[in-house]
């Protein structure tokens, strides 16, 4: 993805593992890249008061979220010498073990790519209006808060 053309970040449902392989394959023609850094967020089966999380139902203030994703992206390109960056975040009910966040940055060198990915993940968790309802096996729920 060209940095001037932001693509929609949200996807309905879990991110299929094949998408990661395809993204890597799509960058093999870009030979100025020497390092990719990937972060994958996976739904964890947390236990709370004896009940186990089975899924997280993600919702968002989508218009604001897409705007904030764009701002984070602009900040990342200003801060790090990265070749490209891709972000995908799930909406809807995502079961435990499935992927809900995929951050993929590429650079000539590893340290830059790793730092940029870390920046994206921390900024997304802190600034993007996404909300998560943790659903337990008995269909009760609690609202997730990022730490």
């Amino acid at each position: 993805m060209d940095k001037k053309k932001p693509k929609k970040v949200f996807v309905q449902g879990a991110i299929p593992p094949e998408k990661i392989a395809n993204s890597v394959a799509n960058h093999q023609s870009k030979t100025n890249i020497g390092a990719h850094s990937i972060f994958l967020g996976q739904i964890r089966a947390d236990e709370v008061d004896g009940k186990t999380v089975t899924a997280i139902d993600y919702t968002a203030y989508e218009e604001m979220a897409e705007k904030v994703f764009h701002e984070i992206r602009e900040a990342a390109f200003a801060k790090f010498d990265i070749t490209c960056a891709h972000i995908y975040h799930s909406l809807g009910k995502i079961k435990v073990g499935k992927l809900c966040l995929f951050v993929f940055t590429s650079s000539a060198h590893r340290k830059i790519a790793i730092a940029a990915t870390n920046f994206f993940v921390e900024e997304i968790k802190a600034k993007v209006p996404v909300f998560g309802k943790e659903i337990f096996e008995d269909e009760t729920h609690q609202w997730k808060v990022n730490k």
Binding site: L101, V121, K125, K127, P129, W143
Partner: peptide, 10 residues
Amino acid sequence: VALLPPFAGG
């Protein structure tokens, strides 16, 4: 105006 509870992305 949007009322936004704590964020939980990622």
